[in-house]
Structures are given as C-alpha cells and as structure tokens.
Amino acid sequence: MSATLSPARSAPGPSPDAAPLIRMAGVGKTYHAAGGATVRALDGVDLDIADGAFVSVVGPSGCGKSTLLRMLAGLDRCEEGSLRLGGRDVRGPSGEVGVVFQAANLLPWMTVRENIRLPLRVGGRHAPAEARIDALLEVTGLADFGARYPYELSGGMQQRAGICRALVRDPRILLMDEPFGALDALTRERMNAELQRIWQTSGKTVLLITHSISEAIFLADQVVVMSPRPGRVLRVLEVPIPRPRSFDSIVSHPAYAGLAREIRALLTEPGDAP
C-alpha cells in the first residue's frame, strides 16, 4: 500500500551533508494589537531542519511556536529575518507544505473521504486521486470509514483523517500544531506510534509543535526548546534513540531520562517558574 505513497526511505533520519530543507535565520515577529500595543512574539530565531527530519518544538504557552508554524505554512507573513523552504523564500501558502491542525479541524458537512479529497479540489488543483486517498486511508487504518462523517469518528480517528488530508497533496513538509492535544493519554500514545510509522513510510519532513515532553522525545530526531515570549531557540537537542521506537523501550533507554530532565529544566528556567 505504501508503494503509492512516496518511496519509503531505507534509513529514516536526517542526512547531515545535505542542505537544510527549512532554514530560518533571524526570524522575528511583532504583533500590533488594536489598541496600539505591540507584542513581540518571536525574536531572532535561527533554525535549520534537514530534509526528512522529524523535529519537535516545545516551549511555554505563548512562546510563538504556533506563529513560527503559521509563517512556514504561509498563513502569517515573515517580515523580519529570512525563512527559506527548499532554497526559496516563503511568500505564501504552497503545495510543499501540509498542515495538521489542532483537534483535526475536519469539515463536519463532508465525509472523511471528501475531507481528505478537499486539498485536491481547491487552489487550482483538479486531480482525481481516489487511489491515493484509498492508500492513505489504508495506511492510517481508516479504510472502512471513508464514507462516515467526522462526528461518527473518535477524536483519534478524526486526527488520523486530518493527517491524511495534510498528506494527500504529497507535500515535502508536514507541519503539526499540537495535533494530539485534545486526545486522552492512551489514544495519544497510540497516535504517536502511528505517526512514527506514517513518517517512516512516507519520508516527509515533519515539524511537530507539542506541549508534551515525552511526545517530543518519542517522535523526534531533534527537540527544539524555545524560551518564553519573545520566543527564541534555547537549545536543539539530538535524540540518539534508535528507531522504530516504542513507549516501552524508550523510557528504559539510558538517554531518555537525561533528555527529559534537560528539557524540563530549560522550560522552567529561573524567573519563568510559576
């Protein structure tokens, strides 16, 4: 089934010698509120993401990590610094990027299949790709649910459909903004394992924003830790745990506890602790 998706990579993970797929240099963002007040959301963000990498971004609420993702998706303009994607400046939404939203964001008046087909119907695209939709439904375990409506699905299944929708245009980059935040802990772990599998079969570059330290470590090649507002990159931590990972094996891996402790320490730097 995965044959109709992008060719599977034999060795998942970033290739260090290749030029980065995403390059952020000095990216800043200031929001102007209606009353004339300004909010500095991001400040001097430098970050390179290699092609095929899985990168998690963790940071306190309001640190601008969603802003960063919105800029990459072309939803917010990058007015400060440079934001390049595949060697080109990001000027607006592009087919290179698929976005997975918080709480799935499926359209309730469309069936699961129609929701997944949506990206192929708009933006000047009229490519019937039923075989591709079938393959995606198969990979995400939704093969029997294509004709259902979102309200007939569990939260986890809805988010899987959201991932299918983000993948259907075959983008190089998948941006995920706390996609599993609304799910219960067990469903969330299962979704993490599935996302790892989907990532390994599809070969996409993934940028995942999350509040969960364990989710960040479990999925990522690198964990980017951001500071409170204005958001800066505090540190980029490599996750040297071999794949495929499982939650059972990862917590007993010697590197795990140290990484988790380091991330937690960075997130609760003195002065930011509640």
């Binding site: 998706a73 072309g74 939404p93 976005v99 918080q102 708009v122 933006g123 000047g124």
Partner: peptide
C-alpha cells in the same frame, strides 16, 4: 481555523 485551512490550501 477553517479559513486558515482553506488559506493554507491556496483556495480561491
């Protein structure tokens, strides 16, 4: 969020 979805897809 639904408008964001359509914008991210470059929908007219």
């Amino acid at each position: 969020e639904r408008i964001d979805l359509m914008r991210a897809l470059s929908a007219s």
